[in-house]
Write a protein that binds this DNA or RNA. Structure first.
Lengths: 193, 193
DNA sequence: GTCTATAAGAAGATAGAC
DNA sequence: GTCTATCTTCTTATAGAC
């Protein structure tokens, strides 16, 4: 268990702070303190706040994608894989690492910083749409169902569930939204074994 | 068309800036410039940034609630009223005035500032649940449907739709999520006239 | 009510020593 | 690679004149 090197600690610290406070709310000083790195260290390894944030966002995007893939690429029916995604462990009140950045004006205004966020959500929707399409192909889901729209609704319930949970300071709000979506999906499923 | 008085301009300016930049990203100076009010003016009318933000958030919460009520309290079947809510005009890429505040660490950390956000989302879910319950009562929607969970899912798709739209810089992402939800609701509805 | 002056501290770096 | 010094601008006010 060696201590990660300085650049690595800076990236990980920035990931944590971006998650909790966003880009606008995260200062270089706070990053340095969290990473136990000096001013000079940070500016030696990274050109500045934006450069470091880019590394952190790319890292978070890759992690998120891997976690989603674990659920969506698992075994089971389409509905079971969607359930695995919807019910996977989440730090609900902390929100989505990437989704929160979509609210940040300085992220949205900076094309470099926005790109990994954009790409990840594009990937997620396509990945979810693929699973929905599988469900339609195997007669689990009705033939008329639009995989892209359904996928977008699923991703939106998760992102919106986070918002509702934070707004009400209660993870229950997230759970309720997920339960509502699962009930709708269950109601239209063809229950084939 | 008189110019609103100073306190009023300060509140409206703060509403706009909170919407676009959040609490952490909004400085008193920016508010003063937007409102064309001086430093002394602002601190004469309000105790400080938090006090002014509270007034602005309460105002935005009341406005949002009134707009939702217009759609949800209109005439028509339950599904038509939900559609009216889902399809009402929105400034999609700007996001939700209140939902974006749920991401703000300084809002969540301050009970006074969080309260109007919390209350508004509680109200919205209950209001939506009432409409869903109406639908169940009138046999538009299946008897087994959980109104609270369905309401949470509907609110989450809207909030999440905003997140997806901002993440992808495209209002289409919002529209797709709404379309997905409407397709699910349509599929389970009983199509009674 | 509004204006200007003042101020302690943070934000986001740059420069040069070690 | 890391450290300290320095710098400009911004943040969030307070104080007192007008």
């Amino acid at each position: 268990m060696d201590m990660p090197d300085t650049a690595e600690r800076l990236i990980r610290s920035t990931q944590e702070l971006l998650w909790d406070r966003g880009y606008v709310g995260t200062s270089p000083k706070a990053i340095q303190q969290h990473a136990q790195a000096g001013q000079g260290s940070m500016y030696h390894h990274f050109a500045g706040k934006a450069d470091l944030a880019l590394a952190a966002i790319q890292r978070s995007a890759a992690e998120l994608r891997a976690e989603a893939e674990t659920a969506l690429g698992g075994r089971g029916t389409a509905l079971e894989r969607i359930d695995a995604y919807l019910l996977r462990e989440r730090d609900i009140l902390r929100g989505c690492r990437l989704g929160r950045l979509a609210q940040d004006p300085d992220i949205v205004a900076n094309e470099d910083l926005r790109q990994p966020v954009h790409e990840t959500f594009d990937w997620l929707r396509q990945r979810l749409a693929g699973v929905v399409a599988d469900g339609v192909r195997h007669d689990e889901l009705p033939a008329g169902l639009d995989p892209d729209a359904t996928a977008a609704a699923i991703a939106a319930v998760v992102q919106g569930g986070y918002v509702l949970a934070r707004a009400t300071s209660s993870p229950d709000s997230f759970a309720r939204a997920i339960a509502g979506l699962r009930q709708l999906l269950g109601a239209i499923s063809q229950h084939r074994q």
